[in-house]
């Protein structure tokens, strides 16, 4: 499966999916005019990947600074998809990074974690640079 690498733009995050290594990440900001332009390509590859990842170790890093409501909805859908895959035996670990002074981003992580039973979800405070 081809890796997916999309550099960040002013209003969309950096996407780095290394399927061979099982390391996926989303970093940056996400408030696109149309959520499908950002999340369409992500879902298009993520779904078939998770469908065939049984017994693999997958790590997904989220290091988001800001996202809008439809991005939040898309992330929720993504977590639902991961939870389903984890239920099927994909070993999924999610690292949710937040700046120590960003209470909102931490709360978002806690909200998402609430619906996850099979996915390992870690809240990680980033060290200020």
């Amino acid at each position: 499966m081809d890796n997916l690498k999309i550099p960040a733009t002013e209003r969309s995050p950096d996407v780095d999916f290394d399927f061979a290594a099982g390391r996926l990440s989303l970093r940056g900001e996400s408030y696109p005019e149309d959520a499908s332009t950002v999340f369409g390509p992500i879902f298009a590859v993520l779904e078939p990947f998770l469908d065939n990842a049984e017994n693999r170790d997958i790590r997904f890093d989220f290091e988001l600074i800001y996202f809008n409501s439809s991005s939040a909805k898309a992330l929720m859908n993504m977590f639902q998809m991961m939870e389903n895959a984890a239920g099927r035996g994909v070993r999924l670990e999610v690292n949710w990074y937040f700046a120590p002074d960003d209470e909102t981003m931490k709360e978002f992580g806690e909200d998402f974690a609430e619906d996850l039973k099979s996915v390992t979800f870690n809240l990680v405070a980033t060290t200020p640079s």
Partner: peptide, 18 residues
Amino acid sequence: MSSETGETGTAFNLFDAE
């Protein structure tokens, strides 16, 4: 992933599950 409304013109639909 299938979209019944196809409102964005792509396969991606934010409210697919709903």
